[in-house]
């Protein structure tokens, strides 16, 4: 296998790993909580893209049976003709869970902002120390 074929057959995984690294760095290095949440979303997007790309088949069509309006299909269904539907299903649920996670995280962030008046991590630590000592 030549170098060009190797790159062509694997470069999609490299793109997803790079995307995941961006999200992971934002999750652990950024101080702002909203930036952390956006990093988590980028991370999840990379994983969703990875799963969907595992289901692709070269020369295949979308996973809807052609001329299938009825109880019996008139022609034999060849599995190599349609892309793998299983990653699509799993990622459809994962996308909706991602949206729910994002909503709940934003609600929690609003609550944190109401209590501490800031979203920077170190300032929240200082504020919580002050609030603890004041008690």
């Amino acid at each position: 296998m030549g170098t060009i074929e190797f790159i062509i057959s694997k470069y999609n995984y490299w793109i997803y790993v790079l995307l995941m690294m961006i999200g992971f760095y934002a999750m652990i290095a950024k101080r702002n909580l909203v930036k952390k949440i956006v990093g988590m979303n980028i991370f999840q997007t990379a994983i969703i893209l990875f799963f969907v790309s595992t289901g692709s088949k070269k020369g295949a069509s979308i996973p809807i049976i052609q001329n299938g309006h009825g109880d019996v299909v008139s022609h034999a269904v060849n599995a190599a003709q349609y892309v793998n539907p299983l990653p699509h299903v799993l990622m459809l649920t994962a996308i909706v869970v991602m949206v729910s996670t994002f909503g709940v995280a934003l609600a929690l962030i609003i609550m944190i902002y109401r209590k501490y008046g800031t979203l920077e991590e170190d300032e929240i630590f200082e504020m919580s120390e002050i609030l603890r000592l004041r008690k």
Partner: peptide, 15 residues
């Protein structure tokens, strides 16, 4: 799933 979806569930959209 791809081969049996029509005869088992009558749904062309496999997803």
């Amino acid at each position: 799933y791809i081969e049996k979806t029509i005869e088992e569930t009558a749904t062309p959209n496999i997803v």
